[in-house]
Simulated scan of single mutants.
Amino acid sequence: MCHCFPVPVSIDLTYETKLLIPGYDESVYLNETRLILEEYLKRNKLNVLRIDWLKLSKLRCYPTFVSNVRHAGKCVADFLKKLHTNHPEFKIKNLHVIGFSLGAHVPSFASDLLQAQIGVKFARITGLDPALPLFLAATRRWKLDPSDADFVDVIHTNSGEFGKVEPCGHVDFYVNGGRRQSVCENDTFPARCSHLMVLPYFTDTISTNTGFWTTQCESYLEYLFTSCRFNVSSTVDQNNQTPISMGEHCPKSARGVYYVETNSSSPFALYQYKIMNSSIAE
């Protein structure tokens, strides 16, 4: 039985609710995940539930944490069921879960349990560069996939190193090619830096006046040869597709693989919502 997370008692659970799950050897209070929390808290009528699962592993080693992803998922499921029992106004099926790295796989286990036990799954899971090591050949039940929520959107910033290579959601965004971020070129550990960059990128998408606009590509080669790059001068791209925004405001109808370009320094979004047709941002 899990006794991992206390149930909050002083929040209005009729508000929209986000569930934030950090990655390996991380705390929602001490690292870049904090940026997402702080940006969300600027909004009115919004709850942010934070899962700190460091205590599930007494040994600070990655394989131990991987083995505990399943246990963390069970704790999350038990926590949410208890929250709903004590506060019927809280609806698990309306929850948006944001998980980073190893934490992106935790909601997969929680969702499987919730679907099996009470017949509900999350409204949305956003996977922030889901972890690759020891998940390369994992079965579908052991990693994030589209069956885990009504809508699963994934952002890749370090594919093939710390982050998953293959698409994991209904829609997958590969930022600046998806493997290495230019802002990390001079970092002493560019792979880890690129992995972490998904956090400030996503943080920037939470604001209502920024947008990481992109259009769909059939392949990585098509992206490399610029035939499907986003054209800010038009509301329709060269493939006659309406552009969409990566991150918080991604439309739930989005499907497929997209390649996103950013600035090399903050603010990272190349384009602003205000210059786009308002109907596109919905």
Score class of each variant (00 low, 15 high):
D153L: 13
R50I: 14
K81M: 05
T64E: 14
G119Q: 03
D145H: 08
K121G: 07
A72M: 09
N94K: 14
A72L: 07
W53H: 08
F135D: 00
G160L: 04
E166H: 11
F135I: 03
A104D: 02
L59S: 10
A110F: 00
S147C: 08
P130E: 06
Q117F: 12
L132P: 02
N158Q: 15
I51R: 01
F122G: 01
P167W: 11
G160M: 10
G99T: 10
W142R: 15
P167C: 09
R141H: 14
I98K: 02
R43W: 08
I51A: 04
A116R: 00
V154T: 13
L56R: 10
R43Y: 13
W53E: 06
L83G: 10
E161F: 15
L59Q: 13
S101M: 04
L144Y: 09
P107C: 10
A104F: 03
V69F: 00
W142D: 08
K58G: 15
A123C: 11
L95C: 08
L128G: 10
N158V: 12
A123N: 09
L59V: 15
A123M: 11
L56P: 06
H156S: 10
K81D: 00
L59K: 15
K82R: 14
G99E: 05
K81L: 03
L128M: 14
I125D: 11
A131V: 04
S108V: 09
N158S: 14
A123F: 11
G99A: 05
D112E: 11
H87Y: 12
A104Q: 01
T85G: 12
T126I: 09
V165N: 12
D145M: 03
V66E: 03
L102N: 03
G160Y: 05
K121R: 10
F65K: 02
Q117D: 12
A72R: 00
I92Q: 00
V76L: 15
V154G: 04
D112N: 08
V76P: 04
Y62V: 01
V69G: 00
W53C: 08
E166T: 13
G119N: 08
R124S: 09
F79I: 11
I125R: 04
T85H: 07
A138R: 05
D153G: 09
H71R: 10
V69A: 00
C61S: 13
E89M: 09
K93C: 14
S101T: 02
L134G: 11
V120S: 00
K82Y: 10
F162S: 03
Q117G: 07
C61I: 13
I155N: 07
P167Q: 07
I51Q: 01
K93R: 08
D129A: 13
F162C: 06
S111G: 02
D150K: 11
R141F: 14
P133G: 04
N47T: 12
T139M: 10
P146Q: 09
K82A: 13
A131F: 06
A137K: 12
Q115T: 03
S147Y: 05
T64Q: 10
S108R: 07
H84C: 13
P133R: 05
